[in-house]
Design a protein around this nucleic acid. Structure first.
Lengths: 243, 243
DNA sequence: CGCTGGATTGAATCCTTTCAAGTATAGTGG
DNA sequence: CCACTATACTTGAAAGGATTCAATCCAGCG
């Protein structure tokens, strides 16, 4: 079975079979299948587990009493939900699925056990740094980018991240997110997301139908997004065994 | 000398004299004084050090080729600039001072040495979690909050954070940030920041003159900001020796 | 086949920006 | 001590991007 989580970590550093097995063990425990639009962890919970998304999309969100919701991060297959969050006594945000998802729930002890191997420690820290960088980039974009740039930027980002875990065919990938969710992630209304999406389509940059996204003109899409992939730190390490 | 960095860590867990000394040693090395509006680390640099802000304010920012700048985090006295950043080979953002600042530059090895003590490890991880939570809150606010809420929210946040390190007198604290910087942090123009600031003033919520902020009506300011301090995880731990 | 949630479209409104100019404040040098 | 400069702050008017409100369309589903 192709495990996007391991695949992603291997990008950072080649893993010995022993290490890969350890990770597979971790990711095989307590695998749950969760329907779409359901919470993995709720705001206010006392977090007790580390979660790994094996399949499907999820998000981290915050909500105000008046109903406003903001999606502050997106979790794609292979993503890790806050290894360190268990130190807090009260979740300041929720984690919910956007699509049906299969999620591994790992106890902190077991997770720490796996991570203690020096090479894995390094992989995990890098993985965490990348997710931090993504968070900063979102912050920047929400403050400085126009709606069009923001949308195009997210498309570029997700495409890249899916590429890292082998979930891209040619220039096509899944896009299961509704325009409403997209709006909450981009700080826009769904109406405006819709219109902006159409701008991208009519400019011949993308195709988006039936939950599938195709990037027709990657160069121009990156250009309109002012997308610079540096922050994803996707360049493979020297000495990696990948091509 | 009052060290805001140690003071903050002590909030998480009482420290033995031995540990405090270790921290003081770390924070005494390579202390530099940096003028206002100067880079501590530049975008594109290969990061070689961990920085601790001992005095003054700084920020993490990103910039686009066309000149747009976004401030994605604020560093106050006692704040740590990315303990883990040294793992990356290329900064995807810059760190610059907003005021004259004194900064301790710590080598990763020395830092790891200090952190290895179990209690300190815990403090540092909590500290990191809090800074993550702040980043998420910024993300949320930029997407969902109005200009007025955003501004009020930042005032509340900074006031709280300064309070944690003993830099608040009554309801008054330093506010050395120009409206231009504020605009870059809030995703607004300085013109609009100015007007929004005046709204807060004329509503009798704050006073802001001569680089000093006074909160006149904390309850109402938090209310207009829809501020919920949970995310700062400021509640002291059970068993703490503080009052 | 009617229902439901998502996608789409139109028109009016509004918050924020843009452009432009004027005022204040602080530091410098003569 | 006062021009002189630079930077920050303030104010006004107009333009614009995004929202709001409202309807319609569409596809999947029981």
């Amino acid at each position: 079975m192709d495990n996007p989580f391991i695949r992603k970590l291997e990008r950072y550093s080649p893993l010995a079979p022993e290490q890969r097995t350890a990770l597979e063990d971790v990711a095989r425990r307590q695998v749950r299948t969760i329907p779409a639009r359901e919470d993995v962890i709720q705001e206010g919970d006392d977090p007790r587990h580390v979660h790994i998304i094996l399949e499907g999309w999820a998000c981290r969100y915050k909500q105000l009493a008046d109903g406003r919701r903001g999606i502050v991060s997106l979790f794609l297959p292979g993503d890790l939900c806050d290894p360190d969050i268990v130190l807090l006594t009260r979740m300041d945000h929720g984690i919910g699925t956007l699509t049906p998802a299969t999620v591994a729930r790992v106890s902190p002890d077991m997770f720490d056990d796996a991570v203690i191997r020096p090479i894995l420690t390094r992989c995990f820290r890098r993985e965490m740094l990348v997710s931090l960088a993504i968070q900063r980039e979102w912050c920047f974009g929400l403050g400085q980018r126009s709606a069009l740039e923001r949308l195009a930027h997210l498309l570029c980002e997700v495409h890249s991240r899916l590429h890292f875990v082998g979930r891209v065919e040619g220039m096509t990938c899944d896009w299961p997110v509704t325009q409403i969710d997209l709006a909450d992630a981009l700080g826009l209304t769904s109406v405006h997301v819709n219109r902006t999406l159409q701008d991208l389509r009519s400019a011949g940059l993308i195709t988006l139908r039936g939950r599938q996204l195709t990037i027709l003109d990657h160069a121009r899409l990156m250009q309109t997004a002012v997308f610079d992939a540096t922050y994803l730190h996707g360049e493979l390490e020297a000495g990696s065994n990948h091509t």
